[in-house]
Amino acid sequence: TTFVALYDYESRTETDLSFKKGERLQIVNNTEGDWWLAHSLSTGQTGYIPSNYVAPS
Rank of each mutant, 00 (worst) to 15 (best):
T13A: 06
T31G: 10
F3G: 04
T13I: 15
L17G: 03
A38C: 03
W36A: 09
Y53G: 10
E14V: 08
T2E: 11
E14N: 15
G47V: 00
T15M: 04
V4A: 07
T43W: 00
K21S: 09
H39Q: 10
A38F: 01
Y7L: 14
E14D: 14
T1A: 14
I27M: 11
R12I: 10
G22L: 02
Y9S: 02
Q26S: 13
T15Q: 13
N29Y: 07
A38W: 00
V54I: 10
Q26T: 14
G44E: 15
T43S: 13
N30S: 08
G22H: 05
I27P: 15
A38L: 00
Q26L: 07
K20M: 06
N52T: 13
D34Q: 10
G47W: 00
P56D: 03
H39I: 03
N52H: 12
Y9Q: 04
K20Y: 05
Y7S: 09
N29H: 09
G44W: 02
Q45K: 02
L41W: 08
V54G: 01
L41Q: 09
I27C: 14
W36C: 10
R24F: 10
V28T: 04
S57C: 15
S11C: 07
R24L: 12
E23G: 00
D16W: 04
S18F: 02
E23N: 02
L6I: 02
N30W: 09
Y9T: 05
K20E: 09
L6Q: 07
Y53I: 07
F3Y: 11
K21M: 08
Y53W: 07
V28Q: 15
V4D: 07
G44T: 06
G44K: 14
S51W: 14
I49T: 02
N30E: 09
T2Y: 07
K21T: 07
I49S: 00
Y9R: 07
S51R: 05
N30H: 14
T2A: 01
G22P: 00
Y9E: 01
Q45F: 06
A5F: 00
Y53M: 10
T13Q: 11
V54A: 03
G22F: 04
I49G: 00
V4C: 05
V4W: 08
S42Q: 06
T13H: 04
N29W: 02
P56T: 06
R12S: 14
K20Q: 15
Y53T: 08
E32Q: 15
S11D: 00
G22D: 09
S42I: 13
R12D: 03
Y9C: 07
R12K: 14
L41E: 12
D16Q: 11
W35R: 14
A5H: 00
Y53R: 10
L41C: 10
E14R: 09
G33H: 15
V28G: 09
T43C: 03
V4S: 01
Q26H: 02
T2D: 11
T13V: 10
Q26M: 04
W36T: 08
G33E: 15
Q45P: 01
T43M: 03
L41V: 14
S57F: 07
W35Q: 13
H39E: 11
L41M: 04
E23H: 02
S57R: 12
H39G: 05
Q26I: 06
D34E: 14
K21H: 07
L37H: 03
S51I: 04
T13N: 13
F3R: 03
V28A: 13
N29I: 05
R24V: 14
D16R: 09
R24M: 14
L41K: 08
T46W: 06
G44D: 13
Q45S: 06
D16N: 04
T2K: 06
T13F: 06
R12N: 02
P56S: 12
W36F: 11
N29K: 14
A38R: 00
G22E: 02
D16G: 13
E10V: 08
L37R: 07
Q45C: 10
S40G: 02
Y7W: 08
S18Q: 05
P56E: 04
T46F: 01
Q26N: 10
T31S: 15
W35V: 09
S11K: 14
D34Y: 14
K21N: 05
P56M: 08
L6W: 06
D16K: 15
Q26G: 04
W35Y: 14
W35F: 12
L17C: 08
S51P: 11
N52R: 14
K21C: 08
L37A: 03
Y53V: 08
L17R: 01
A5K: 00
Y9W: 05
W36M: 07
T46D: 06
G33Y: 15
S42G: 11
Q26K: 15
W36N: 04
T31H: 02
E14L: 05
D16A: 09
S11T: 04
T15P: 04
D16E: 14
Y48V: 07
D34W: 05
Q45G: 12
Y7I: 15
N30G: 10
I27H: 05
K21F: 03
E23I: 00
S18W: 02
S51M: 11
D8A: 07
R12A: 11
G44R: 05
G47L: 00
V4R: 11
T46S: 10
L6A: 08
E14T: 09
S40R: 11
R24K: 13
S11G: 12
N29A: 13
T2R: 03
R12P: 04
K20N: 02
H39V: 11
S42H: 02
V4E: 15
T46Y: 15
N29E: 06
L17I: 05
Y7R: 12
Y7K: 12
S57Y: 03
K21P: 01
Q26W: 08
T15L: 05
E10A: 09
N30I: 06
N52P: 04
L17A: 09
W35L: 13
V4I: 09
L6F: 03
T15N: 15
E32T: 10
W36I: 12
N29S: 15
H39Y: 10
E10I: 15
A5S: 07
T2P: 02
W36H: 06
R24G: 10
A5C: 10
R12E: 10
E32F: 05
L17E: 01
V28H: 05
D34F: 08
E23F: 00
Y53K: 13
N30V: 05
H39K: 09
Y53F: 07
S42A: 13
Q45L: 11
E23R: 00
E32V: 11
T31F: 14
K20F: 13
E32Y: 08
F19C: 14
H39L: 10
S11R: 13
I27V: 13
L6G: 01
L17K: 01
D16F: 04
S18A: 10
N52S: 14
T31D: 09
E14F: 05
S42M: 15
N52Q: 07
P50F: 07
N29M: 14
L41Y: 10
V4H: 03
D34C: 13
T1M: 14
S51N: 10
E32W: 08
D8C: 02
P50H: 11
K20I: 02
L6H: 03
S51F: 15
T15F: 06
F19S: 02
V4Y: 04
E10M: 11
F3H: 06
N52E: 12
E14K: 07
W36R: 05
D34S: 06
E32K: 15
Q26P: 01
Q45N: 07
S51C: 13
A38D: 01
Y9D: 00
Q45W: 05
